[in-house]
Nucleic acid binder design. Structure first.
Lengths: 245, 245
DNA sequence: GTGCCTTTGTGAAGCGATGCACAAAGTCAG
DNA sequence: CTGACTTTGTGCATCGCTTCACAAAGGCAC
């Protein structure tokens, strides 16, 4: 008989909590740099911009790492959160699509220091293939599958035009990838078990515009009628920086 | 006595709904391009990657724009959502910080076609000031306030290193800006009435790493002990592309 | 005009996240 | 060792969003 050891950190951390852990980690790193040894939930919450009760509840999902009357040991908590997020190991990342955005991503220094390593750059344009960016040579997208397998890539960043995104997505999934960060302005269709996160500048701006309009005028123009001469410009999809070069 | 006319579109659209409207808009534009005249909530929901009941409830917050038994008129719905999001007017956007990311953003073609117009590029580095990017000359950050006022900038994109972000934020708010899109990896402190939206590559990757780890091994290594030789690398904050040049 | 068929708009239940408030647990001074 | 003080961890009420399920509304064929 196998006795089940009831772990403090029972499986199933809420998504909302997971999304905030990187925030806490960043705040903790800032504190560590300034030499702070321990921090209360209240202070850490302020630094991370959240409610202190929420922070404590979030951390309680990882385990009981605080000391009552004192707070949390900064270094220890950094380690525990890093471990929970999987940052104590190395993740090989491939970037597909080397337009303006792909280049910016490839040059992103924050990658390396966080357990993420750019293991490949890919593009379908022969004019770009062979170019050297951030120490890597851009490879042709044909080799995607074999390189993913060979170099153990587990996270793929899609920075292609919208038209190519789904195909790239399908191919990398077929090659075994189950984590995708998508910058192309399309809704990717993926099988169960594959995680897709989306970053979309256009959507963020539109959300801001909505609120800005509310603040400025108390809402959009009243009345539901069509004004004359309305022309709705269609959105041709290319992510950040691919469109206008 | 002023009779209150009960508008179908009563103030207060849920945030979750607002965040999805751009998605619907994109799907509708795709349909319009293919010449589709009307669409059912079911079909549109599939195209946008959401549940059809959710879509109907979202749209019902804008008004009663569907026809039972038929669906929604594509063009009409495009117009209504655009109006609600404030895309029927022109928004002047300033980009502060012209590193790799700032350049990619400036070159982003999707801006113009959606009612967003880049009205200024700013940087504190004299080596960058004067450079011509996407048809605009980079201006020195000293002129931020006056340019914001003069050109009626209402949305500011912060793409500076983390260390400069809060100062830029304070200054543009003082100049009257109330909508900010922040790419710097810091929690910005702003007064009430100011909207900040955050885009953070590093956080997205960390969330993916968390799920990837779960899928791969059933969780982080068991046990809570500190392994020997743990070195936690601190995160020096620079957004996308500023760090490594 | 009548009746069938499709699809919307929404009441209501369900679910997860938030934030308050406090008991439990630990520190520290004397 | 004792007692005052600090701060965590969490039960609980609440809130907002999601999803189901269906009555109401409109189109269309005959």
């Amino acid at each position: 008989m196998t006795r089940r050891i009831p772990q403090a950190r029972e499986r199933g951390i809420p998504d909302a909590t997971v999304a905030r852990l990187p925030l806490y980690l960043r705040a903790l790193n800032g504190l560590a740099e300034r030499g702070t040894a321990t921090v209360s939930s209240e202070d850490l919450a302020v630094a991370a911009g959240v409610n202190s009760a929420k922070l404590r509840k979030d951390l309680s999902h990882l385990g009981s790492y605080g000391t009552r009357g004192v707070g949390y040991d900064v270094q220890y908590l950094i380690y525990q959160i890093s471990r929970e997020l999987g940052l104590t190991q190395d993740w090989a990342v491939a970037i597909v699509g080397v337009g303006n955005l792909g280049r910016a991503l490839a040059n992103y220094g924050g990658f390396v220091s966080r357990g993420f390593r750019v293991a490949g750059l890919f593009d379908a344009d022969p004019g770009v293939v062979g170019e050297r960016i951030a120490g890597l040579v851009v490879e042709h997208a044909d080799g995607l599958e074999s390189v993913i397998r060979k170099r153990g890539v587990s996270i793929v960043v899609i920075a292609t035009p919208a038209t190519a995104a789904q195909e790239v997505c399908d191919r990398v999934i077929a090659a075994g990838v189950t984590s995708i960060l998508n910058f192309a302005p399309v809704v990717l269709t993926v099988p169960d078990g594959v995680d897709v996160r989306k970053v979309d500048l256009s959507i963020e701006l539109q959300i801001l515009a909505f609120h800005e309009q509310r603040k400025a005028s108390g809402g959009p123009m009243m009345g539901d009628e069509w004004p004359d001469g309305v022309v709705v410009v269609s959105e041709r999809g290319a992510p950040l920086g691919e469109a206008s070069q």
